[in-house]
Design a protein around this nucleic acid. Structure first.
Length: 642
RNA sequence: GGGGUGGUAGUUAAGUUGGUUAUAACGCCGGCCUGUCACGCCGGAGGCCGCGGGUUCAAGUCCCGUCCACCCCGCCA
């Protein structure tokens, strides 16, 4: 029987030792982080999940010196066997980084002049009486340190080493804390944790599904669930009333910094609720998560207990998108109406747009082309090359044509601008007044389709905020701004004029707009909501359509025939007719939330084993080609790659 | 599907108008060192310059192709 582990059991984690433990006999197991060899005296920083402790190997001292007059004195002889102490020193001289060892020793004070204030354990060290080598380790490709420059693909290939680093240990512990808090809080609120299938029926539309061939049903495929949406609604029809699940979802789309093919959602659905009920539950949950993770005191930020709300239309108007970062101002300004008033204000590009509205079809709800402005304050004091760099980075937006700029000079003149010559005085002054600009401010204009104008200016807004340091390049910067964005349009129009569901076809239109379904679908808003944190959408949901008559009207706007609806969503439609309670819910992106709480910039730092940008697992090598026999069994033939 | 950036020692990077033996730091190996904590000092090893082709007397460097990584657009109920 091994002496260590079996007989000599671990008493503490390295990182938890404190001055309060002085004089204690301890047993530590861990990894060698650093070794400092002075020939006859060796210091090792021993690391485990709680942190580092300095352990000292030194054969050249007497037990009495270390043990003086504490309780260990009586067992000093048994504890300090000098041949074991010498063997431990020899072992210490031979160990290398990341070797796994165990030690038995005594916690002693380092002496005032040797205290290391940067370590939690910096006041103490452990004098080693006996040591064991559990395992050697090959030299790792990169150091197990907090700050490393190593490329992410190498870190991912050796993920098990990367995960030893303190920042990732912290992130995954925060993930644990989020999971635990969700389970406890939602369970306390009466929600049942129920599971839904991963192997599902493929449904067209929405995200691409991963497909899984069925061996037992030749030629047929399952789809991996992209979300538990339909099943959680069925739970409501089955009378479970309140449900939650921390669930893996799968989407076969291209990856991004904040998008992985398999990710985790906190999924919630409730019966007999209004939008406000869903909000209250989520606000309580977020308050608790922020508290338990030690992130921030939301009570101080939101004394009412509720997060602010903003309509989708207002968000798009003021910030250019539906997930505004409210940590700073710098709002956009719509000049379309003013431009129409001034008949283009002498600017050809603007007049081309305002002419389109002459027949009186201008409507705020469905503008096709607009004029909008953004002001870079004079205080930012950007150089011309810096301003041009902003414009350059906007070119990645599809359809972006250019950024018209003007610098405001004395008397409200526009300078350093192609607009200077042609703009009418009246329009220029009206614009200045509306924007409330001052000398030296840079006016940035966008004319064109709503999508491009908003995409460009909302990106510019963020870029400028980061460049001026109002918010950091990544991370929260100590600021937290939560927001509900509510009531977006139910439909969006395709290029051919037909209508598509902006989110999904089972979202309930707001009551006042039911009549518009047949007369003006563009203006129908719905009970859909997104929860936004610091400019990231961390969750979204809706109150569902439970009335079969209204459902039928929605389908008819979408041009979905009864037969087609039956084919696509048959089981849900039947269930809705079986006695469906009014219900609604939400799903929170658990990875993304954890990423934001941890201050990280990438989802890969809060997911233990993430995929690369190409969806590869560089550690295991997945995905791989498989043996033709396996394909035969699955009734699958692989087409030759082009 | 498209655009951008990059790939040189284990790691991170430098490498001039194409020109002798491809540099540095950290890490690694050996030696010395009893109060360090990014220990220090002395010495040493380590390279298919992503891969394939081309131009040239000569390619890390120029050209073509390709693979991989990262970032973005499209896409993401």
């Amino acid at each position: 029987m091994a002496r260590f582990i079996d007989e000599i059991r671990r008493t503490h984690y390295c990182g938890e030792l404190r001055a309060a433990d002085l004089g204690k006999e301890v047993v530590l197991f861990g990894w060698v982080a650093h070794r400092r060899d002075f020939g006859g005296c060796v210091f090792i920083d021993l690391r485990d999940r709680e942190g580092l402790a300095q352990i000292v190997f030194d054969a050249d001292y007497t037990p009495g010196e270390v043990l003086r007059p504490n309780a260990l004195g009586t067992r000093g002889e048994a504890f300090w066997n000098m041949s074991q102490v010498k063997a431990a020193l020899a072992l210490a001289e031979g160990v290398r980084r990341e070797w796994v060892i165990g030690i038995r020793g005594v916690v002693v004070h380092r002496g005032e002049k040797n205290v290391n204030p940067r370590l939690g354990t910096g006041e103490i060290e452990v004098r080693v009486a006996e040591a064991v080598l559990f395992n050697r380790a090959e030299t790792p490709a990169f150091s197990v340190e907090d700050d490393i420059q190593t490329d992410e693909d190498i870190r991912l290939k050796y993920r098990y080493i990367d995960l030893r680093r303190a920042p990732l240990q912290r992130n995954l512990r925060m993930r644990h804390e989020v999971n635990q808090t969700v389970r406890q809080y939602l369970s306390d609120q009466g929600a049942l944790e129920l599971e839904t299938p991963i192997l599902c029926k493929y449904t067209p539309g929405g995200a691409r599904n991963f497909l899984v061939p069925s061996r037992l049903n030749a030629g047929k495929f399952y789809a991996l669930a992209e979300s538990p949406q339909l099943f959680k609604q069925l739970f409501m029809m089955s009378g479970f009333d309140k449900y939650f699940q921390i669930v893996k979802c799968f989407r076969d789309e291209d990856l991004r910094l904040d998008r992985q093919p398999e990710f985790t959602q906190i999924d919630i659905e409730m019966s007999f609720v209004s939008q406000d009920d869903v909000f209250r539950l989520l606000e309580g949950l977020l308050f608790r998560i922020f508290e338990k993770t030690g992130t921030a005191d939301l009570k101080a930020l939101y004394p009412s207990g509720a997060f602010p709300r903003m309509s989708f239309a207002e968000s798009v108007n003021r910030f250019g998108n539906d997930k505004p970062d409210l940590r700073f101002g710098l709002e956009l300004c719509d000049l379309t109406a003013l431009s129409i008033e001034h008949d283009g204000g002498g600017l050809a590009l603007v007049k081309a747009i305002t002419d389109r509205y002459k027949d009186g079809t201008y409507r705020l709800e469905v503008p096709a082309e607009i004029v909008k402005a953004f002001v870079i304050p004079a205080s930012a004091n950007f150089s011309r090359p810096q301003l041009e760099a902003f414009e350059k980075s906007l070119r990645e937006i599809k359809g972006f044509k250019g950024l018209a700029r003007a610098k405001l000079a004395d008397g409200g003149a526009w300078t350093q601008s192609p607009l200077t010559k042609s703009v009418t005085d009246a329009f220029r002054l009206a614009v200045n007044a509306k924007l409330g600009v001052q000398d030296g401010d840079i006016l940035c204009f966008q004319f064109g389709t709503t999508d491009v104008v908003n995409a460009a200016l909302s990106k510019l807004r963020i870029d400028v905020a980061k460049k001026t340091g109002v918010i950091p390049e990544s991370g929260h910067g100590g600021k937290w701004e939560l927001l509900w964005v509510v009531n977006p349009p139910l439909f969006e129009q395709n290029e051919d004029g037909s209508w598509a569901a902006a989110h999904h076809a089972f979202t309930r239109p707001i009551d006042e707009h039911l009549e518009l379904l047949s007369t003006d679908p563009a203006r129908v808003l719905c009970y859909r909501y997104d929860l936004v944190l610091n400019g990231f959408e961390i969750g979204g949901g809706s109150i569902r359509l439970h009335d079969p008559d209204v459902q039928q009207k929605v389908f008819s706007v979408l041009g979905i025939e009864a037969a087609a609806a039956q084919e696509m969503f048959g089981f849900l439609l039947e269930a809705l007719r079986s006695g469906a309670p009014p219900h609604g819910g939400i799903a929170i992106g658990m990875d993304r939330l954890t990423m934001l709480l941890s201050g990280g910039a990438t989802l890969r730092d809060v997911i233990p084993f993430p995929k690369t940008n190409q969806g590869l697992d560089t550690m295991s090598g997945a995905p791989v080609f498989v043996d033709p026999k396996q394909l035969d069994e699955l009734h699958v033939a692989v087409a030759p790659t082009k």
